[in-house]
Design a protein around this nucleic acid. Structure first.
Lengths: 215, 215
DNA sequence: ACTTGTCCTGTCATGCCGTCAGCTTACCGA
DNA sequence: TCGGTAAGCTGACGGCATGACAGGACAAGT
């Protein structure tokens, strides 16, 4: 029951309209990858989509509105990140594997959607609740699972009592997101992609379990 | 020897000119805190500074150019973050203290400069080398110290050999930066500022030494 | 008072924004 | 088949930001 897709002035969009709308979104997505967010103009998106600016405004209130739409679509996919953690173990060798796969999946997802995620991150940091919510939606899936894992280990006495599972999980997730969006940066620091992953996985494992992984 | 401050058309700026220039920078700084980066317009900055857009363009090529200037100033201050780590120990109780003070200082610095740091982060993520360099300048001070600390512990055999100091240090620094810029976010996750810090410090300590701190 | 170089702004061409009226196209029922 | 209705698109327009320039205001030294 998401309701039908509607134009700004309230008409319901038909087949053709939806196609145009999607084309505009696709073109916007491309533009976000190739030029700074600040310089993305409605007219450029429209031109790229082979239509006119007026058409753009029929479907979106402004660039930001369209960006939110793209972000929403991505967030829906991003919910799949939960599977990286569902039912996984954090003890012994399988704990190390869980950690590695989480890092792998996370970095991959971020790499695929880096342009839009940059903008979402900015919006969230600027305090825009709409972007903030989307960021939460993506990170929550991972965050909650991690927090649960920590809490569980804590209940078994394997993790100190004064640890706050939510704080630790949140920090780890933030780290993953930050490293992912500055992946290129590490190369300039003399750290190769392939080297980065296991070290990141190590930090994740340490954070969750408080112990070095058994490899 | 940074050379004198110059206008866009090559004149050297005198006392009065420098004052106006600085006022424009200050106003821009304020605007960045109060409105989204994308919506910051030259005309608004000029109005706020009680001058005209033409004056702005005399000193800066565009908004981005002025932002770089502000960022540069901040980066100079940020170099002081090194002191949070210079000559500190990572063993025993003092290790725990080092970790705590690092987190404290880092979050504080970020909180003070959050608006401009947001923009720098975005610019860097978008691949703009000028922003990237500034981000490095700030983080390098901390990053290098951390990497050294890890390498040292590694030489003493207290940290596994297959750990890459640069990768670990970079990831930790990225975590600090990310958590700092989304501090508000944690509150919505039910994590209070005061709770966040020790948990973050714990993660830092774990990452650097591989062991839980002795408190 | 006059000169000199700094500093600021009025003005202008250009281009994007965001809206509207109006035209074209697709769909549907009679 | 035909006409009605709603969807879909665009040209055109006022408004505003951009960025450049030339000329006027101002301070400081002579």
């Amino acid at each position: 029951m998401t309701g039908q897709v509607r134009t700004v002035d309230g008409r319901v969009a038909g087949r053709r309209g939806q196609a145009t709308r999607q084309k505009l979104l696709d073109c916007l997505s491309e533009m976000l990858s190739s030029s700074p967010y600040r310089d993305v103009k409605v007219i450029d998106v429209a031109r790229k989509a082979g239509t006119s600016p007026a058409t753009f405004y029929q479907y979106f209130p402004d660039v930001e509105g369209a960006v939110l739409e793209i972000a929403e679509q991505m967030a829906a996919e991003g919910a799949g990140l939960t599977e990286l953690l569902a039912g996984r173990s954090w003890v012994g060798k399988s704990g190390w594997q869980t950690s590695q796969e989480l890092v792998d999946g996370f970095l991959e997802f971020w790499r695929k959607n880096d342009a839009i995620l940059r903008v979402v991150d900015l919006g969230a940091a600027e305090g825009d609740k709409r972007f903030y919510k989307i960021r939460m939606k993506i990170l929550n899936s991972v965050n909650n699972s991690l927090a649960d894992a920590v809490a569980e280990l804590q209940a078994k006495g394997k993790v100190d009592k004064d640890v706050n599972p939510a704080a630790v999980a949140g920090s780890i997730v933030a780290m993953l997101a930050a490293v992912a969006s500055h992946q290129k940066g590490f190369q300039t620091w003399g750290v190769k992609q392939a080297e980065l992953k296991p070290n990141l996985a190590l930090l994740v494992h340490l954070g969750v379990t408080g112990k070095k992984p058994t490899k």
